[in-house]
């Protein structure tokens, strides 16, 4: 036997539902306000404070007879929400962000009794997932990301970035010193202490590296142009062949 506390004014459908519970021998009480009497199930037939404040039992919102926007705001506080149609269920999820698993469609009171019964005994399975059409309204066709033009533009961009880095020498670097009076001497000393490494050894290596980098980028750009040309020729050939191929098929 369950103890059910009914909160809010009841519509004829809900009176029938309560009659069904009474006939089974369940204990039905009515309650109002923020502190309704203790019960195992709180059946709210309207949005009341009790939905938000109840800290015991299972709170069930029966929104079947009159689905109003106010229902949506309270529905997420209930453990279970009963609605009459799939459209109402969809509205609760889409407009108010309620959990679809907690919203059940109960077309008749027999189904409602079954759901409430299972919810009270913690044996209710979550409601099935929503089925709805996808809102994919891609108004314009998207570019083909794998088209040769896009891929070539991508590689050209990368090559440009590499070309700008080809000159690895720090050409604007000057030995400086902030020391007062002896600063110029320090600069002269540092320059002369490192010149035996820089002039015969580092500078030629770096210049060779720069020349190599520049030449490599140029070669890559030439290869890219050849490849672009080949891709376009291939595309033209494919376009010429495809109708014929389709025609034969």
């Amino acid at each position: 036997m369950m103890k059910i506390c009914v909160i809010g004014p009841q519509a004829p459908t809900q009176q029938q539902l309560l009659t069904m519970f009474r006939q089974r021998g369940d204990d039905i009480v009515t309650g109002e306000g923020e502190s309704p009497p203790p019960a195992g199930v709180y059946l709210c037939v309207a949005i009341t404070d009790a939905i938000k404040t109840a800290t015991r039992g299972v709170v069930i919102l029966d929104a079947r007879p009159d689905f109003a926007p106010a229902v949506g705001e309270g529905a997420m506080y209930a453990d279970i929400c009963l609605v009459a149609t799939d459209d109402d269920r969809l509205r609760l999820v889409d407009e108010f962000g309620c959990e679809p698993a907690r919203i059940f469609v109960a077309a008749d009171n027999h189904r409602a009794v079954e759901i409430i019964d299972r919810a009270a005994r913690d044996t209710l399975l979550p409601a099935p997932a929503l089925s709805r059409p996808q809102k994919t309204e891609s108004t314009l066709p998207l570019n083909d990301a794998h088209s040769p033009d896009v891929a070539l533009a991508q590689i050209r961009g990368r090559l440009r970035a590499i070309e700008q880095q080809a000159d690895v020498v720090l050409r604007h670097y000057r030995v400086r010193s902030g020391a007062p009076l002896v600063g110029r001497f320090i600069v002269w000393l540092r320059r002369n202490l490192t010149s035996h490494l820089r002039e015969p050894y580092l500078d030629p290596i770096l210049n060779k590296q720069v020349a190599f980098n520049t030449q490599l980028v140029q070669e890559l750009q030439t290869m890219l142009s050849v490849q672009a040309d080949l891709l376009h020729r291939l595309e033209k050939l494919e376009q010429a062949i495809l109708p014929d191929k389709n025609g034969r098929e």
Partner: peptide, 10 residues
């Protein structure tokens, strides 16, 4: 990255 480029261009 090519897909991202295409979407940005779009």
């Amino acid at each position: 990255p090519a897909d991202l480029t295409a979407l940005l261009a779009h």
